[in-house]
Amino acid sequence: MRRNGPLALIFHGLFVVFMLAPLLIVCVVAFTPEGYLSLPTRGPSLRWFKAIFDYPEFIRAFRDSLWLAALSSTIAIMLAVPAALAIARYRFPGREAITALFMSPLMVPHVVLGIAFLRFFTQIGISGTFVGLVLSHIIVVIPFALRLVLAASYGIDRRIEHAAISLGAGTATVFRRVTLPLILPGVVSGWLLAAINSFDEVTMTVFIASPATVTLPVRMFLYIQDNIDPLIAAVSACLIAMTAILLFALDRLFGLDRLFVGSGKG
């Protein structure tokens, strides 16, 4: 195996530091006992973590964001699976157009989407509702779901399905017992990526969210406009910790490389 040269090592080191340093600093700052953003020089304190519970808006926004992410990514993946199978297998008129349409939310700036949805939702009378939020998020995350399911669908040997058919399996059984398990890595990673993107979305959501439907990122954004204190760092630290635990659990249960690459642990 070729070893990395010193220059490459320095580059990789800097890269890793650049990626991880902000996360690390936020986590450390969250433990400060001071009333302003600073490193905890007087010893760590849980003051700002306790403060989160004085702001039930954060808890509610977190819960709403989780629901929103789960709902929108689940619906997006349910639309993406049949679309991906059709696009991967059949040559039909409008195939390119449909692919482009599904992918287009990636191309349109989220600011534009936000304004467009605001106007449109007002027009049809669902402005400021959770339904509107879910609908807009489905559209924004569908490219991620479709991309990954599509990649998995292209890789399927159709003769495996033919073998199942010849052994007596009907269309529904073939899908449930053969096709779905074969594209499952793409489905799971597509769902995960869609959920993360939905959870994370601010630019568009700011326009659509109403006081009744504020997601966590929007709540955080609104909060730092008024006060800059370590509370926001504590919220961030909680999110980072939860993400880390989730990824760790997924890795132990399924293997992350298998989820995202579709190989590895059997």
């Binding site: 040997d157 003769r159 495996i160 073998a163 058919i165 010849s166 017992r177």
Partner: peptide
Amino acid sequence: APNKRGLGIVFQSYALFPH
């Protein structure tokens, strides 16, 4: 229908169910 024909097929690529 192909799934009612009751024929055994062996493919060049084996086409085993990998899972």
